[in-house]
Simulated assay, not measured.
Amino acid sequence: MTSIRPRPATITDIAKRAGVSTATVSYVLNDAPGSRIPEGTRTRVRSIADELGYVPHASARSLRKGSSDLVLYVQMDVVHGPLATEFHHHLTLRLRDMGYTLLQYGGERHRGVKAARTWAAMRPSAVIVEHERLTPAGIELLHKADIQVIATGVAAEAAKGTGVSTLTMDDVGVGARAGEHLVGRGYRDLAAVVPRGHVLRRIGGLRLQGFQEAAARAGVGATVRSLDMDWSPESAAEVVRTWLDEGLPEAVFGYNDEFSGLLLGAMRDARVPVPDRTALVGADDLMLCRMLRPRLTSVRLEPQSIEATAQEIVRAVTERTEVHLSPWTPVLVQRET
């Protein structure tokens, strides 16, 4: 037997049931100012709307207002860690307080115009998306649809004057804090790992850049060597074997806490004392740092005001202007490694 899915209720259905015009229903449900509708009629219309399960259509509401309250966040093609998850949660709450809805969207991997058309079809007021997914033609399409573009993974300096806003994590600064700490403690033979995989490799490259620049700025002759690594115990063991063959570094920046945890385990298996023979620094300051033995020194990304970030995103939408945001400050958390 074929079942027929019920049609969603409309304001026409409410008007017929209440014995009023559709205009009256619209005025009531949208709390239109200046409308002289008796309180009894208002109560009856709202009661029938609740009874019918009426939900206003977002696209229709956007057309009526001339703007959308939707901010579309296009997820990166990686599993989000606790830092990003917590940031998205609090940003969702702050934007909601300001009358906007943050919608996280994933699944398709298109870029350029094809991706821009998909995003524009949702009628958001802004799209937060990785810069690599954007092309000039795609940006132009979004701007013609009056959708503000907020790019991640690109420096503000590279975007200023293009009409594209930025929301960036200071990955160069993360690497720099690790390098400054290790060089400051007297280590000169340094090493770093860079994760394999397209997205993580880009982030790892920025952290490596900051690490190398900090070592060079110190002017003490510190050297940095780097190796690629997968997120697996086997890959960590291979990296440590390479260091044993070539000479163990005095100190290592392990990209993040999870990669550093794998390296710590591999070094313990190889009977490399940490930190007595080789020091180790991670990044992100996860709970894992306090669970490991010895406890892992890490670079924490200290969040700035989420409310201020949300306010700037709304300003980009309402004033149709560029904003350039980097709402985290890299801070070293020294422990035992």
Rank of each mutant, 00 (worst) to 15 (best):
A222Y: 06
D230S: 10
D171P: 01
D230I: 01
S165C: 14
W243F: 15
W119R: 02
E319D: 14
G247S: 11
D284N: 10
R320E: 07
P327F: 04
R207T: 06
Q209I: 00
K160P: 02
D69K: 10
T22S: 10
R42I: 15
L262I: 08
D77S: 15
P275I: 05
L286Y: 04
T12F: 09
L244F: 06
V224Q: 09
A145M: 01
L142M: 15
G197F: 05
E132D: 13
A116W: 00
D257K: 05
V333L: 07
T12R: 10
K160R: 15
I37V: 15
S68M: 06
T278M: 15
V129P: 01
R7W: 04
V20H: 03
L91Y: 01
E86P: 00
A310Y: 03
L167Q: 06
E246S: 10
E246H: 10
A23S: 15
S67E: 10
E39F: 04
D13V: 05
A279R: 00
H57Q: 13
I11H: 00
A120C: 07
L190F: 02
E307P: 00
G184L: 11
R188Y: 06
V149E: 01
M1N: 09
R17G: 02
H181Y: 13
T85A: 14
G261V: 11
V149Q: 01
T329K: 13
H131P: 00
H88P: 00
P33T: 04
A18K: 01
